[in-house]
Design a protein around this nucleic acid. Structure first.
Lengths: 189, 189
DNA sequence: GCGATTTGCCTATATGGTTTAGGTGAACGC
DNA sequence: GCGTTCACCTAAACCATATAGGCAAATCGC
């Protein structure tokens, strides 16, 4: 009887793929075991429980998303950086809806603190350097940007924008314009 | 053996309460049956399956939220209406996190079309009457506002804003200011 | 009132996901 | 070769979902 070559990393990646194909809520140890043609109990040698699998997928997605965003904003500033950040974020959610969902998975505080979520906040602050915002305005702006990006892609992927014939892409561009303008007028002299 | 007096309505309300107490994902027929001290199978006389229970809770929450928002914006206009809308929305999510989650439950298109979701869109458009936006700007603005409100309360209830000592309430007010300003500068002459 | 029917909840059972305990065989260290 | 470790196994308990079928209380026709 050959070995399937299970490792936490391979299980995490397969779980991420499964999430994109069938939705994050369909990520179960049973489904994962089927995918590797192995019995469910075998997975417990590599994962503490199903919670750990989901947490690992979440952390993996956060890293991957942070990498893409970092790549997109490198060498850009101002509205250019804002747009690159926002598009990288939205593109990731559209290309990997299951992983994006996973990135929203509730992590316990210490896991969250050690996650790439911190990089996300840092990159958002980096974007805002082009807008000359002093504290606490900068924190307010970080929260507003995070809210718009997350809210938009959540509603979009949930199909919320498909009932009118105005293209979502245009609303996205319009929203980024409005955000850029709002941030510029709030620059502290 | 006395009767428990089960009806779809009472089960839906109890499910909503359960969602607020333990989280929407903890809403199961088993938990509901325990709450009424009946056997799980008995619930199937009143509900087709667990999917229907969740759908009913979602529709209930959408109605309730729409009622609160309608009440809040009545007789207001401009920034006053925007603030009232936004606060009613956020207050509901904070007071009833499980129901708010339920309102985000994926409905099939025809159920969604018959739901209070339609009222939400109408009310958002009503808010924008004070800002003189022509189409397609109005649709863009509806989407942006929906994204900010949903995104903000999602991140806030997920604990995303609890790691800095800047009060979330201040960021919320700042964000509403910024949105109001952005909408005013986009008014079509 | 009394029989027939409907209603409300029941038991029993099947399916499938999670988790733990304990076992086996193949590979590897020496 | 011998023992240990590792990767995967069987078995079994627990819980949620769902269906089938039964019984008794409530309700309706007369």
């Amino acid at each position: 009887m050959g070995r399937a070559g299970l490792t936490p990393e391979r299980l995490t990646l397969a779980g991420a793929e499964l999430a994109d194909e069938a939705g994050f809520e369909q990520v179960t140890l049973s489904a994962l075991a089927r995918r590797f043609d192995v019995k469910v109990a075998s997975l417990y040698s590599h994962l503490k429980n199903s919670q750990e699998l989901k947490t690992r997928i979440a952390l993996f997605a956060l890293e991957e998303l942070a990498d893409r965003v970092a790549d997109a904003v490198a060498g850009r500033a101002g509205k250019d950086a804002l747009t690159a950040f926002a598009n990288a974020y939205r593109d990731y959610a559209r290309a990997h809806p299951g992983r994006y969902d996973a990135a929203r998975f509730r992590l316990d505080p210490q896991t969250a603190a050690a996650s790439a979520g911190v990089r996300h906040a840092q990159m958002t602050r980096a974007i805002l350097r082009g807008y000359d915002l002093a504290e606490p305005d900068q924190t307010h702006a970080v929260r507003m940007l995070g809210s718009v990006f997350h809210g938009y892609v959540s509603l979009e992927t949930a199909g919320g924008f498909s009932h009118t014939n105005v293209a979502s892409q245009e609303s996205w561009a319009w929203t980024l314009d409005a955000l850029d303008a709002a941030l510029r007028t709030r620059a502290t002299p």
